[in-house]
């Protein structure tokens, strides 16, 4: 199923950009569910959530590192990085804070030479 973004952009926050892809039975299935489900279904919302889920599932370890590297170099925005990495972005921040707090300690105290051994 070919998928192409109409715009390659740094910002994922605006929802006026569309993704188009060819769909046959999938489109009919979505229309059918919209028709028979009480209250209908929001196909765009389902597609957005489903796409994020599948994008994340498609990321391998190297891809995650590549995304974060680009984010840390300022080449992609936080919103785009967040689509792909989710709460991993917050965890990175937590790790940084913890490491920096640990750096403030007097590390010479941890050495074997520090206690006269």
């Amino acid at each position: 199923m070919p998928l192409h973004a109409e715009h390659q952009c740094m910002s994922g926050s605006s929802y006026d950009k569309t993704i188009q892809f060819r769909a046959g039975a999938e489109k009919e299935a979505a229309e059918l569910l919209d028709e028979i489900h009480i209250g209908g279904v929001n196909v765009s919302e389902l597609a957005r959530v489903g796409l994020v889920e599948m994008l994340r599932q498609s990321l391998d370890e190297q891809d995650k590192i590549a995304v974060y590297e680009r984010y840390s170099r300022g080449e992609i925005g936080e919103d785009v990085a967040r689509v792909l990495l989710g709460e991993k972005l917050d965890r990175m921040e937590e790790e940084k804070e913890s490491f920096e707090a640990a750096m403030e300690r007097d590390t010479s105290e941890f050495l074997t030479g520090s206690d006269g051994e």
Binding site: K64, K88, E95, K96, F99, E100
Partner: peptide
């Protein structure tokens, strides 16, 4: 640690590099 642990290693190593 990045080579052997993938993202798990990167998460801790990258922050060490950034903080130092």
């Amino acid at each position: 640690m990045i080579q052997t642990e993938g993202w798990t290693g990167y998460e801790v190593v990258k922050n060490a590099w950034t903080s130092i």
